[in-house]
Design a protein around this nucleic acid. Structure first.
Length: 351
DNA sequence: AACTGGACCAACCGCACATAT
DNA sequence: GATATGTGCGGTTGGTCCAGT
């Protein structure tokens, strides 16, 4: 962070970004990478502060971002991760390929909060509202710590910018059998490795790695050679049991089926049953967890926070390897829209 | 048609932390 | 060690859209 003498203060633009500004920023980053954000606006000819450029890039322009509504699986995963991590939006977003912390945060505040309240669940504590309002369930991280004792204690002790370490108690949704069986659900695939660890796939692996969402070092290969994120094997479910114990309706049963990570939602969509082989089946009335998300939830992989370690120039020119969608237009109807070609270099999209 | 209120979301703000000088 | 600067994060704000009246 070299110090620089700032020149005369120039009035900076604020508010929404124009397509022209986006084009300038994308062209600049495609050519030079962002390097030092404070210098980006000057070099790129933008009347914005570096911070604003960084935000615009991260939240809107960066390749690989998903736009549009959250899927049910994503929603379930957000709820689960929030129950474990609290308002650690960046960590939550790291588990949702293509989603940004800002997007997750907005989605939480505008959709999920309301949804949970309608179901009588305090979105801050993930406890039933009555209990949450009785004092014991004050909306604090401390209360969550009490609920998710062993896992949460470790999570909360982790540095703010560091992904939490994994413990057996942290990820208790699935204990895989050793047969390496796989199941598909909602576009995702999960299964068990011979060492008892869990694999999960279903994302666009190339793009995800390129964007830094997943660490290739964390890969195992599932059946058919599908690269998958390896999740730690688990042998206990104390945390989930404690979660289940929060609700009078919570029950645990044991299933002896070979089904991997089944999930059944009751007809009213209020109660979900997670069922993994040789695993206690956990009913979480206040968590509507879908199948893939239940497995994905188990994969709060600590590699996700490597997300932004990669600079644009790194993943465009090294990792991306020309995998970025050719001809993708940020502004579909704009003549000024920028495309990224196979080498991640910007070009103008003329419609 | 005009107004109002709520929902949604992009962007800003303030703070904490890391690091160079 | 003190200070300045850069970066990242979470909270908040404000603009836009849309349905309801």
């Amino acid at each position: 962070m070299a110090r620089r003498t700032s020149g005369p203060k120039k009035k900076l633009r604020r508010g929404l970004w124009s397509p022209e500004e986006d084009g300038k920023l994308m062209n600049h980053i495609a050519k030079y990478g962002h390097g030092c954000w404070s210098s980006v606006p000057k070099i790129a000819g933008l009347e914005r502060c570096g911070k604003s450029c960084r935000l615009r890039w991260i939240n809107y322009l960066k390749p690989g971002l998903k736009r549009g509504a959250f899927s049910q699986e994503e929603e379930d995963l957000v709820i689960y991760l929030h129950s474990m991590l609290g308002n650690k939006w960046s960590q939550i977003a790291a588990q949702l390929p293509g989603r940004t912390d800002n997007e997750v945060k907005n989605f939480w505040n505008s959709h999920i909060k309301k949804k949970l309240r309608q179901r009588g669940i305090d979105p801050a504590t993930h406890k039933p509202l009555a209990e949450a309002s009785s004092g014991r369930g004050a909306a604090t991280a401390a209360s969550r710590t009490a609920v998710f004792s062993d896992a949460e204690l470790i999570l909360s002790s982790a540095g703010q910018h560091m992904p939490p370490p994994l413990t057996a108690e942290s990820y208790v949704y699935s204990r895989s059998s050793a047969d390496g069986g796989a199941s598909t659900h909602g576009g995702g695939v999960s299964g068990a490795c011979s060492d008892g660890s869990m694999w999960l796939s279903g994302y666009n692996q190339t793009a995800d790695f390129a964007a830094g969402y997943m660490d290739p070092d964390a890969l195992h290969f599932g059946p058919s050679g599908v690269p998958a994120v390896v999740l730690p094997s688990v042998s206990s479910s104390s945390t989930l049991n404690s979660m289940a114990g929060l609700s009078p309706a919570a029950t645990t049963t044991t299933t002896a089926t070979d089904e991997q990570c089944n999930a059944n939602s009751s007809s009213n969509g209020f109660e979900s049953t997670l069922s993994c082989s040789a695993t206690p089946t956990i009913h979480l009335p206040w968590l509507e967890l879908g199948t893939s998300s239940s497995c994905a939830a188990a994969g709060v992989d600590h590699y996700g926070a490597a997300l932004d370690e990669l600079k644009w120039s790194d993943y465009v020119f090294d990792s991306y390897g020309g995998q970025y969608q050719q001809g993708q237009c940020i502004y579909g109807d704009s003549k000024d829209a920028v495309q990224f070609d196979a080498h991640g270099l910007g070009s103008w999209c003329l419609n």
